[in-house]
């Protein structure tokens, strides 16, 4: 018990003192996960809306696939991206393995299906509400997508936060393609795993507290966004 209390004390000390290594790890984690979430949103949101809007051969299979890929095991994604980026792989010449870019790619692969599937669901509910109206206003097909994205903007923030939550908490994929190299590719989750293994509980705890704070902040933001959305969306009820 004393040991745990001492570790907590050390962790708080690291946080308060502005320990460079600790904050470097936090900054890299945020950078990688924010970049991955941004790319996933740029790819997944229009794709999800397009899946909601258009009927084409193979659509049902794509819908099932994106939903199934929401639960992709991170280590499998890590292995897949590792094989792509390793020297013998098709993208080996780019020299991205064990760089933050590789970690961004791995997290993007993990997060994009989540963003796509959630956006499709949102798009279908928006279409049920606005589809005929938009068609009557001359906004059909691709021309409807910007309006639907705008009308779903609050819910889309929640979608993005769900993606970010998945990215920031993930450990297996970034460990495999980033290598957990100190000052280069070490992020919060990989550092916690490493430091715990080494018995350096204080640093692991401090990182754990930051990670927990980030997770709580993301959830609080998502909750606030849902409240705002409910305020605007269900004002008629």
């Amino acid at each position: 018990m004393d040991e745990l209390a001492r570790a907590f004390g050390l962790a708080l000390g690291l946080l308060v003192s502005g320990d460079r290594e600790l904050y470097g790890i936090v900054a890299l984690s945020l950078e990688v996960s924010l970049a991955a979430t941004l790319i996933a949103c740029l790819l997944g949101m229009p794709a999800g809306m397009a899946l909601a809007l258009f009927r084409f051969p193979g659509r049902r299979m794509l819908v099932v696939a994106t939903s199934a890929l929401m639960g992709l095991p991170p280590v499998v994604v890590g292995l897949f991206v590792y094989l792509l980026l390793s020297r013998a792989g098709p993208l080996g010449a780019l020299g991205l393995l064990y760089t933050p870019a590789a970690m961004v790619i791995a997290q993007t692969v993990l997060v994009t299906p989540i963003v796509t599937a959630l956006t499709r669901e949102l798009g279908e509910s928006l279409l049920a509400e606005y589809g005929d109206f938009l068609a009557a206003m001359g906004r059909r097909g691709l021309r409807a997508i910007p309006t639907l994205l705008h009308e779903g903007r609050h819910a889309l923030v929640t979608v993005a936060l769900a993606g970010f939550g998945r990215a920031i908490a993930e450990v297996g994929a970034v460990m495999m393609v980033g290598g957990n190299i100190r000052h280069v590719t070490r992020v919060m989750t990989t550092a916690i795993a490493l430091e715990t293994g080494k018995g350096e509980i204080a640093l692991a705890l401090a990182l754990g507290l930051v990670l927990l704070t980030v997770a709580l902040a993301v959830n609080a933001l998502a909750h606030l966004t849902r409240l705002r959305e409910a305020e605007l969306a269900h004002a008629r009820a």
């Binding site: 509400e129 606005y130 005929d132 109206f133 009557a136 206003m137 001359g138 906004r139 309006t147 009308e151 903007r153 609050h154 605007l232 969306a233 008629r236």
Partner: peptide
């Protein structure tokens, strides 16, 4: 066409009319 269930966008009244004018 005005639908039986009125369509109200998630924006202010002015902004909804501005959207319709842009259409």
């Amino acid at each position: 066409l005005v639908f039986q269930r009125p369509v109200a966008l998630r924006r202010r009244v002015r902004a909804q009319l501005a959207f319709a004018l842009s259409c």
